[in-house]
Amino acid sequence: MTELKVTGPARLCVENATLRYDERIISRDLSVAIPDGSFTIIVGPNASGKSTLLRALARVLAPSAGAVVLDGKALAQYQSKQLARTLGLLPQASIAPDGITVADLVARGRYPHQSLFRQWSCADEAAVEAALAATGTTRLSARPVDELSGGQRQRVWVAMVLAQQTPILLLDEPTTYLDIAHQIELLDLCQDLNAKGRTVVAVLHDLNHACRYATHIIAMKDGAVVAQGAPKDIVTEQLVENVFGLPCLIIPDPVAGTPLIVPKGRG
């Protein structure tokens, strides 16, 4: 089972960071550690700063105070391509250039492995093929991205990040637009990648999926971390009530034994 997997001390952590957009401070004095080898899932209500945290972890957003540290060195001190071969981000919104085909888009994930003088290699080809196969998009590879359904498109973007072949993957809402079967398929894929040694960090909205798949959960509210740890240890009725303002019952998931949240609603 996933719970038995060994997770090491953190390679990637946020240390006393202030995250802001100009005047607007989202997180103050934020400290978060991503256990190495974990499948970490970030949960929290809308606008609680999940994407902001993920962007800081990927160096897309620089903290105005404090630091994000990878292997003991601040992200700011890394050479950018070297960092891009270590950390891959699926942003919440990306743009596909007009008329680009699936294969060409996924191939752009190889950018950090290439240079002006080393443009396209067999390793690139293999990485793209593997990423297409892993996301079930091989059949789509010659199609223009504009003509795909939302769910197909989302899987293509995930394939692009996979093609980057980074040991750490940061995925912002990778399951949006996916039907339930494809959501589970994608989470299974993340779990497989994690089992093969990659550290996966994902923002998810479905708490039950988070409890089922995460080895480590980070619950956020108003830009602060409210709780973090293994789902079994931290997901309680009080936590869900506190973070989401949702009265609920928690029962053991009949399949996996992980916490299963049942909203009380209005009865």
Binding site: A58, V60, A84, I95, R108
Partner: peptide, 23 residues
């Protein structure tokens, strides 16, 4: 010529470009 590959990567949006190592 040297900037043409980064230019194409920038077409994916700023966040995607930054994570591929582009300022």
């Amino acid at each position: 010529g040297a900037l043409s590959r980064p230019l194409r990567q920038l077409e994916l949006g700023d966040d995607a470009a930054r994570t591929s190592g582009i300022n």
